[in-house]
Simulated assay, not measured.
Amino acid sequence: MIRIPERDLPLPPALIEQLRATQQNPRYHAEGSVYHHTLMVLQQYERHVDDFDLSPAERELLYWAAILHDIGKPRVTRWTGTRWSAKGHERAGLPLARDLLLGQPQLTSWQCRQVLDLVRWHHIPLRWGLHQKPLDNYLLLATRLDLRLLGIFAFFDLSGRVCVDKGEVLHLVRTFNEETVPQVTERLGSYAELQQFYAKAPFQLKNALSRAISQEHAPLLEKLIRQEPIFPLTARPRFTCHLMLGGTATQLTEEAGRLPQAPTFSLDPLACLNHQDVHTWQLGLRPLKHFLSVYAQAGQAVSLTGRWIPAALRREIARHVRQLEGSLRYTWLEAPLATLIAEAEATPCLVDLYQQMDLPHPWEAHATRGI
């Protein structure tokens, strides 16, 4: 095992002990435990962060990504009989990473989202490079997160490990940073430019962009962004659907109260529907679809509230609202799981949903904000 100078990490002591106890495949991580790997990544961050043109905010995002990127490994690491495996640790780390980031008041909701994106996708430069994924995959991903920051973090992460194929690994990261990211930027623009483009896009163009992403149609996505097709300026949504998620019952009630004229539908009874049981799923969604259809026809804004819902339900709502020619607006209320538990609102189903969280695409709704 490689000896690494120990230091304090801004993590709960119990979590640090879990990271110490979580072993890794020595073929890829001869440095030892997840804790030791995290120390090495942080060391690489401090050694090389000045080599890149980064704003203070970007430096902080990368710092927290270094701390949090592998905290999902204690949840999923298993001995297969021949080696240690941590399959799915990127997504498994999101709930705890989110809760820890909510305790950092200097970070905005959008900055927390960017750190979580780095945690969720930090293996992409290596994994897709090994599998020689086509550029179309990266074009689609570029609308979701900042590929430039992803590549820089991948360099810190992969430099902070001891493995037999380190030269090949770092070559793949250099290729990502020096070839893939510039190609994507040339064709679509930077991440900041893409988010500004979407924010200013007319209603129908946002719908077309969302369809291109959901269908994984990169050529259409590029055409829509580069050519900016002209949609009728008279085209307006028939109604607005405000989807409010992630808070306590009190927070959700207060937020819905800011729209006193908007009828409210609670999604909590639908949260635990099994979307794989098609009959039960469709039957359970009938009241919601009827509610949306009635107020879409009347042209009246509505509010949907839920403490936490599965991604399948959220995407179904987005699809149905767009079918009804409505505008969908997400409001994320930043309540950590501990708050829900303390207020006796965390049912076993809700805890399970929280632990399975994934990040919605930032263009899934017509507008998104965090509170």
Rank of each mutant, 00 (worst) to 15 (best):
N137S: 15
L139G: 06
T180I: 15
L158M: 10
P202S: 06
D136H: 15
V181F: 07
E186W: 15
L135D: 00
L170D: 11
L172R: 14
N137T: 12
F155P: 05
K133M: 14
Q196L: 00
F203W: 08
N137Y: 15
V169W: 04
V173P: 07
R144S: 05
A154H: 12
T185R: 04
E193M: 01
L188E: 00
R174I: 07
A192K: 07
F176D: 05
D136Y: 09
P182Q: 02
N177K: 04
G167A: 05
T180K: 08
R174Y: 13
K200C: 09
R148I: 03
V169Q: 10
Q195F: 06
H171I: 03
L170W: 13
L139H: 10
S159P: 07
L140C: 04
R187E: 15
V173F: 05
L158V: 01
T180R: 08
L194S: 05
L145R: 01
R161E: 12
D165S: 10
Q183W: 03
G151S: 10
Q132H: 15
R144G: 01
R144Q: 08
L158H: 10
E193A: 11
E193W: 00
D136F: 07
Q195G: 00
F155C: 10
E179H: 07
E168Q: 09
N177T: 03
V181A: 09
D157V: 04
R144E: 14
E186H: 15
G167L: 00
I152R: 00
A154D: 14
L172F: 12
L172E: 14
S159A: 14
P202V: 11
Q132L: 12
D157E: 09
E186R: 15
G167V: 02
Y198I: 04
F176S: 06
R161K: 13
P202A: 12
L188T: 06
V173Y: 03
G189H: 06
F153V: 12
F197A: 08
N137C: 15
S159M: 11
F155D: 04
L145E: 08
L135E: 09
E193D: 07
L135P: 06
A201W: 05
A142N: 03
Q183M: 10
V184N: 03
L140G: 02
L149V: 08
Q132W: 11
F155A: 14
R187T: 10
H131I: 06
D157N: 13
L135S: 01
E178H: 11
I152V: 15
S159F: 07
L170Q: 12
H131Q: 14
L170I: 13
L140T: 00
L147H: 12
L135F: 04
V169E: 06
H131L: 11
Y191H: 11
F153D: 10
L149S: 05
H131P: 00
T143V: 13
L172C: 10
L140P: 06
A199L: 15
